[in-house]
């Protein structure tokens, strides 16, 4: 299970300390017990449910009054670009 917590943390791009991994590992078994309640429901009862209507609009580009304020939220930038660490060595 600690390996499982680490694997999930990796998928979520979340660095955990050893203490955190151990803590979550213990808590997850209780939380998964809670989740297992829904596995008691039989499949036929579930058929045809859970469709949430999708509400989509046209993907139109609208001007934003102050784009500089948005880009300015970045912790590091250079010119009009977001600055990040090297992707490839």
């Amino acid at each position: 299970m600690p390996e499982e917590v680490r694997r999930i943390a990796q998928l979520a791009r979340l660095r955990l300390s050893d203490e955190e991994a151990a803590l979550y590992q213990g808590q997850f078994s209780r939380i998964l017990d809670l989740f297992s309640q829904i596995s008691k429901l039989q499949a036929p009862a579930l058929d045809g449910h859970g469709q949430i209507p999708s509400i989509l609009r046209e993907d139109e580009v609208l001007p934003f009054s102050n784009p500089e304020a948005l880009v300015g939220l970045a912790p590091e930038r250079e010119g009009g670009y977001y600055k990040v660490k090297k992707v490839m060595e």
Binding site: S39, L41, L46, G50
Partner: peptide, 16 residues
């Protein structure tokens, strides 16, 4: 399937 999809359908039942 076991978790997210099933929970979505349970949500439908609750709504019903």
């Amino acid at each position: 399937d076991a978790y997210y999809n099933r929970a979505s359908r349970v949500r439908g039942l609750i709504r019903q």
